[in-house]
Write a protein that binds this DNA or RNA. Structure first.
Lengths: 220, 220
DNA sequence: TCCAAATTTGACCTTTTGGTCAATGATGGT
DNA sequence: ACCATCATTGACCAAAAGGTCAAATTTGGA
């Protein structure tokens, strides 16, 4: 076994193949759901024999879990280091902006996540209990501090967060509906701005805040 | 063939069986998605031989379409006869309340609808183009009239409706997440009130409205 | 009562599914 | 150069999928 820090040729190809397969799986799982995407479809999409997919990821369950793990591990959306000292308007605006951007630019992840939750979250139960719940509890505390300081209206912070999540993810998960109903083929840059503006405007004003002047583009 | 207005025994049993099958299919499709629910599972759930299911609904596609049609045909949620003369606060509040109630009491329909849209709406494309789009256009006009009358803030009516849909349906589609994160087993009546209040508060205030005093319970 | 139509259902068919396996080829340390 | 280990892949398998069919049963009008 190579203990070298430099990756051996084997390791490189393995990682490259795993990546191809994971990408293909993410795409197909998000389009067709767990049962709708077959191993042969995924293999074809990844341009790899089916048996090779099973070689790297021992089962379909395993592959699906790997896809979900990868998605969840990349979710870090700027609400992480907030404190009662921050400005809620700026924090929430940037958060909404970042989430809308993610929804429009990478809708697959949101769709896969949504499918999983609709199915009863069999693979995300642990994540939700162990990670999401404490994370949310932490944010709730900060929000409550802001409210007590009079920086924003008093609303249930849980439902405020749910509203932000829903309003932003909607443009990813219900992409097909939004585009059809608005008679568009795909989102444009102008839509990103319009959505961010509309959603942020409603929600921020809804909790007694105003959109900050400094419209510096949010990270991510 | 019976031309009688009273239903013959045959018709009664046929309708009864169709209902049993449709109910079973709705339940399983909403839980597991189109591909996740098999015809044998549906037959078992309906306590009917599989061949009988295929006798009434000639194919799985056909059955799925029938389930979707039934859901869509029952969607009539109080935003139907609004005019610029109505009070936006009251209309929107009742609409949000009705949608939250539906989300909590009958989450299956919302979940099935969501799954279908995530999959790219293969069966709902027509409905969205022919029904939903004109419906939305009509509401947009009313909203714009309200805005011009100064009854409410100026926001893009499309995104306002999307925000309402997302925030309310979220409690059905993401039921598993909401309950897990809030450490609950199922929704209670108190939750219905709290959700209605929070969502309505944020969205109404977000467009310059206040929740009407007359908290007469919305229909449906 | 009789018969044509509608209903019921087990047996059966083809295709696809997730998954296994063994043979072969490539890799890299010694 | 050698060889143990890892990687690749076509062939194969049992189970489950959606769907068909024909024989048996029930129904309701004449």
């Amino acid at each position: 076994m190579t203990v070298d820090s430099r990756q051996s040729k084997k390791e490189v190809t393995r990682l490259k193949n795993e990546l191809r397969i994971l990408d293909a799986a993410e795409k197909l799982f998000s389009q067709a759901g767990y049962d709708g995407a077959s191993m042969s479809m995924i293999a074809k999409e990844a341009s790899v024999p089916k048996a090779n997919v099973l070689y790297y990821f021992k089962s379909k369950d395993n592959l699906y879990e790997a896809v979900i793990d990868r998605i969840v591990s990349t979710w870090n959306l700027g609400l992480d280091n907030i404190t009662p000292a921050h400005d809620p308007a700026e924090v929430l605006y940037n958060y909404i902006r970042a989430k809308v951007k993610l929804a429009i630019k990478q809708p697959m992840q949101s769709k896969l996540f949504a499918s999983e939750i609709i199915r009863g979250a069999p693979y995300l139960k642990d994540y939700l209990r162990v990670k999401a719940r404490p994370w949310l509890r932490d944010k709730v505390c900060v929000f409550e501090a802001w409210m007590q300081q009079g920086k924003m209206d008093t609303v249930d912070p849980n439902h405020l967060l749910f509203t932000i999540w829903s309003a932003t993810q909607y443009y990813a998960d219900f992409e097909a509906e939004v585009l059809l109903v608005m008679n568009k083929i795909e989102y444009e840059d102008a839509d990103f701005d319009a959505i961010t503006q509309s959603v942020a405007s409603i929600i921020l004003k809804g909790v007694g805040l105003t959109i900050p002047d400094s419209i510096k583009s949010g990270q991510s």
